[in-house]
Structure formats: structure tokens, C-alpha cells
């Protein structure tokens, strides 16, 4: 074998292959599928999923999991809408408060996980209940967001030509991805998450700040969940307490399909970006197809998830066998 592939990169390459395959199939089967506008729409419609998926990548690489993200999006969305609509708070102030709350929420969960050695899925499950309940506490109904400043944000965008338009929400998604790539590959924080995910014991013995990094990872994810909540409320121009039920599963699926190992210690933010785009592509494909019902999305995502997990399993076994 002349061309040596790094074991760890195979899931990522498989992800890229699947993306190209679906994209190619769509382009051949349907006219207008291969257009800049459809491609840019992937970024617009999945901006909120993508923003959380970046945070979730760090959480999963560090060996944890966060199930609370969907509820946090709903809570932040409805809280921001309530503040603006009922109390007349300026949107920028409201969004800043929301981001702060999200980060605090993540920090508390991270602290519980670290200091009391509770399993991450239990703590974040509780976080999921709590955030959803708080969302209902804020309002039981959807609240519209109407504010000149919000409209200005929504209307802000860069025309790309070919009838495509890059709005602020998609820009946030791309910016977060770039920040994620920077944090992951060029900072100590990024390297520490890999170390903790590979072996927490070794990380402790190496003298790495395990506790601080763990709490930071959850804080960062909480902050991004809140940001996704803001993006989602801009996307829908409203806050709704029942929004994004089951979003955490889509996000985890995107991260796994993006090539991140669920056992921790391996994965890339760039892969997650492609994972998110694949989920979006499946939905676009089903929309273009027209006769398939929306529940096929769930089944296809489930099957893809299965294939990728099987691939990861095979690779880690092959790696261990050496």
C-alpha cells in the first residue's frame, strides 16, 4: 500500500464522500439542485444546528455528552422574545443577557459533572428538564419578536450573486465554525480536550488542568447553545417554548456523522461542519423529491448514524489489533 491513510482521518474522508455522493445524486436527479442558492440555504436553514454542533464536538471529544441543548435553545428563544416584547428591553441587551445565562447554565452543569463526579448524561438530562420547564415558566405560548433593531439584523446580509444572499445568521454560523477550528487546533484548551477525551487518568498525571478544561467545555457549549437560541429566534422571528424538541439528537448525529469518535479523543470541527451540511442535504433532497414524507428524514438519519458508528467501531477495532 503506497498511499497510507491515517486511521483517524478515515471517518472524515467517509463523511466528505457521503456529502459529495448525496450532492452529486441530487444534482443529477433534480434541476436547480446544483445552484449557489440551494447551497447557501444549507447554511441558513441549519445555522442553529451548526452553532450547537460545534460546541457539542468539543464536549464529545472531551469524553462527555450534552443532552440539554435543544431545551436551552427553546428557553433562550422564549426568554429573549419575552424581554423584548413584554418589557421593551433593547434586543442587544436582551441577547447579551441570554448569552450570559447560557454560559452560566453550562458552567453549573460542568461544575456538577466535575466536582461531584456525576455522569454527564445524567446532569445534562436534568439540565434538559430544567431548561424546558423554565421555558414554559416564561411563557406557555409563542411570542412574536418585532423590533426595528431585530429587523435590521435580519435584513442585514451580503449578496453573493446568482440570486443568493448570505444573511447574518449564516454569517454567525460560519464565524463560530472558524472560531471552533482556531480553538481546537491552535490553543492549549483545544489540545487539553483531546487529552482528557483520550484518557482522563493520563491527563491528570500529565498535570493538565482537567477540571478547568471540563468546566470550560460545558460553559462554551452552553454559550453556543444560547447563541443558537438567538439565531433560532432571529430565524423564526419568535420564541416558542416547545421549539427544538429532540434537537440534541440531530446535533449528536451531525457530530458523529462528521467523524468524531463518541468515545472521545478524536474528531474535527471541520468534520462536524460537513456532518451538519449532510443533515441539511438530506432534508433538501427529500424536499426536492416531493413524494417522500418528512419522517423519512428521521429514518435516513438513523441509518446513516448506524453506518458511521459501525465504521468507527470497525476502525477502532482494527487500530487496537495492531
Amino acid at each position: 500500500m503506497k498511499l497510507r491513510l491515517n486511521q483517524k482521518n478515515i471517518p472524515l474522508l467517509a463523511t466528505i464522500a457521503v456529502f459529495l455522493l448525496i450532492y452529486l445524486a441530487g444534482s443529477v436527479l433534480y434541476s436547480n439542485f446544483f445552484s449557489l442558492r440551494v447551497f447557501v440555504n444549507l447554511f441558513i436553514d441549519n445555522a442553529f444546528v451548526g452553532v450547537i454542533a460545534i460546541g457539542m464536538t468539543f464536549v464529545i471529544i472531551s469524553g462527555g455528552i450534552d443532552l440539554s441543548v435543544g431545551s436551552v435553545v427553546a428557553f433562550i428563544g422564549v426568554l429573549a422574545a419575552k424581554m423584548m416584547h413584554d418589557f421593551g428591553v433593547h434586543p442587544l441587551l436582551a441577547f447579551s443577557i441570554c448569552l450570559g445565562l447560557g454560559a452560566m447554565f453550562g458552567m453549573i452543569m460542568g461544575s456538577l459533572i466535575h466536582f461531584f463526579e456525576l455522569p454527564p448524561f445524567l446532569v445534562t438530562l436534568v439540565g434538559m428538564f430544567l431548561a424546558r420547564g423554565l421555558a414554559f415558566l416564561v411563557s406557555l405560548n409563542a411570542i412574536p419578536i418585532k423590533h426595528p433593531a431585530v429587523n435590521a439584523i435580519i435584513d442585514f446580509g451580503i449578496p453573493l450573486g446568482f440570486r443568493a444572499w448570505l444573511p447574518a445568521t449564516a454569517m454567525i454560523f460560519i464565524a463560530v465554525t472558524l472560531v471552533g477550528i482556531y480553538l481546537q487546533h491552535f490553543t492549549r484548551f483545544g489540545r487539553n480536550t483531546y487529552a482528557i477525551g483520550s484518557s482522563e487518568q493520563s491527563a491528570i498525571l500529565m498535570g493538565l488542568p482537567v477540571g478547568r478544561t471540563k468546566i470550560l467545555v460545558y460553559t462554551f457549549n452552553g454559550l453556543l447553545s444560547a447563541l443558537a437560541g438567538v439565531v433560532y429566534s432571529l430565524y423564526t422571528s419568535s420564541g416558542y417554548p416547545l421549539a427544538c424538541v429532540g434537537l440534541e439528537l440531530d446535533v449528536i448525529a451531525a457530530v458523529v456523522i462528521g467523524g468524531t469518535l463518541l468515545s472521545g479523543g478524536s474528531g474535527y470541527v471541520a468534520g462536524t461542519l460537513i456532518g451538519v451540511l449532510i443533515l441539511g442535504l438530506i432534508q433538501t433532497f427529500i424536499t426536492f423529491q416531493g413524494t417522500l414524507s418528512s419522517w423519512w428524514t428521521k429514518i435516513v438519519i438513523g441509518v446513516l448514524l448506524f453506518i458511521f458508528i459501525l465504521l468507527q467501531r470497525y476502525l477502532s477495532k482494527a487500530g487496537a489489533g495492531k
Partner: peptide, 23 residues
Amino acid sequence: VIGIQPIIATLILMVAGRGIAQL
């Protein structure tokens, strides 16, 4: 048999299962 982590293994059916029920 395959040795997948339980959270993830059952996550697959959790996502796809509701789709199957709707089907």
C-alpha cells in the same frame, strides 16, 4: 455483539424508531 456504547446504540432506534412508527 458489535460492541457499540449503549447510549449511542439505542440512540439510533430512538431517532429512527419514531420515523418507523410514523411510517
